[in-house]
Amino acid sequence: MATIYHITTQAEWDAASRSGIYEAASLKEEGFIHCSQEEQIPGVLQRYFKGKTNLVKLVIDTDKLTSRWLYEWSPSTADTFPHIYGPINATAVVAVEQVI
């Protein structure tokens, strides 16, 4: 099992857990949901979520995902990140952790 992570708000996750499906805005805008490896989380929080509150980290078991995912190169950070090409089924989220 590979584990990947996605940062979102508690409100967005609450809505997704009720519906069973999570779709970030990037899925519609870019065609995939941005995720991270654990060691990339601090940088992601600094770059994209600075000053935001009520955030959670979704812990995703890739073996349980129903959407295709893969690692892709990000030239802006010179690193490889996991991207999910479709919605995240709630059953693939094995934990939800508060971001402090």
Rank of each mutant, 00 (worst) to 15 (best):
G43A: 07
H83Q: 08
V59Q: 00
K28N: 08
A2C: 08
F49K: 03
G43L: 09
L65S: 00
A16Y: 01
I41V: 10
T80M: 12
P82V: 02
L55P: 07
I33L: 00
D61G: 11
Y48E: 12
R68S: 11
E72H: 14
R47K: 13
D61T: 14
I33H: 01
E12W: 07
L65F: 02
I100C: 10
K28R: 15
K50G: 11
T9N: 05
E72I: 11
N89W: 11
G43V: 06
S19Y: 03
D61E: 13
T53N: 12
H34E: 10
I21H: 09
K57F: 02
W69L: 00
Q46T: 15
S74Y: 14
Y48F: 14
A90Y: 13
I21P: 05
T3V: 14
A24W: 01
Y48L: 10
P42L: 07
G20E: 00
I60L: 03
G43D: 10
L55A: 12
R47L: 11
T9C: 07
A2T: 12
D14M: 06
T9V: 06
A15Q: 00
A78T: 14
G31V: 03
A11M: 04
Y71D: 13
W13N: 01
E38N: 09
P42A: 06
P75C: 12
W13Q: 02
E97I: 09
E38K: 14
R47S: 11
A11K: 05
M1Q: 08
P42D: 07
K50A: 15
A25G: 09
A95G: 11
A92W: 05
L65P: 02
A15K: 01
K57M: 06
S76E: 15
I88Y: 02
A11V: 04
E23N: 13
E30T: 13
A24H: 00
L70E: 13
V96N: 06
V56P: 03
V44K: 13
N89D: 11
F81L: 13
I4S: 01
L70G: 13
L65H: 02
E38Q: 10
P75Y: 15
